[in-house]
Computed example of a mutant assay.
Amino acid sequence: MNQQEPQYFVLIVPGCLLLLGLAFLLGRWILRDQRFLSWVAAGYIIPSLALSAQSLMTNAQLADWSVVIATFYLFGSWAVAQGMAVRNGSHAHPCIALLIAAITLALLFYFSHIDDRLWFRIVILNAGIALVQLLAVRSLFARPTPEDLSERVLNISYSVSIAYTLARPLVVYSFVPAVDMDNLTRSNLWLLMLATSVLLCLWFALVVFAITVRDILLKVSDERYRDSLTLLLNRRGFFESAKIFMSQPGDQRYFLLVCDIDHFKHINDNWGHLEGDQVLQVVSRTLLTNVRGGDLVARFGGEEFVMLMKGNNMTDASSLAERIRYQLEQTTFSHSAEKVTGSFGLVEVNSLQDLPAAIGRADALLYQAKNAGRNQICVTA
Rank of each mutant, 00 (worst) to 15 (best):
I216N: 03
V160F: 11
P169S: 02
L131I: 01
A298Y: 00
L19A: 12
N59I: 14
W39Y: 12
V283Q: 02
L170E: 08
Q3L: 14
L199F: 13
L288S: 10
L191G: 06
I324W: 07
C378F: 13
A41Q: 05
F9C: 09
V306W: 03
F255K: 01
A92M: 06
L56P: 01
V86G: 04
N59P: 03
L189W: 02
G21E: 02
L328V: 01
I45P: 02
G15Y: 05
R361G: 09
L320P: 00
L56K: 08
R325Y: 09
F175H: 10
V179I: 13
Q327Y: 01
Y254Q: 06
Y44K: 01
I12Q: 00
F175T: 10
V220I: 14
V137Q: 04
L108C: 08
I122C: 04
Q34T: 08
Q330W: 05
L166H: 04
L352T: 10
L22D: 05
P94S: 09
F238A: 05
N188H: 10
Y158S: 08
V347S: 07
A167K: 00
V297T: 13
V198R: 01
E275L: 10
R253A: 15
Q327K: 12
H113T: 12
F238H: 03
F300M: 15
V13F: 13
D116T: 12
K339A: 15
G293S: 12
F238P: 00
I69G: 02
W78I: 06
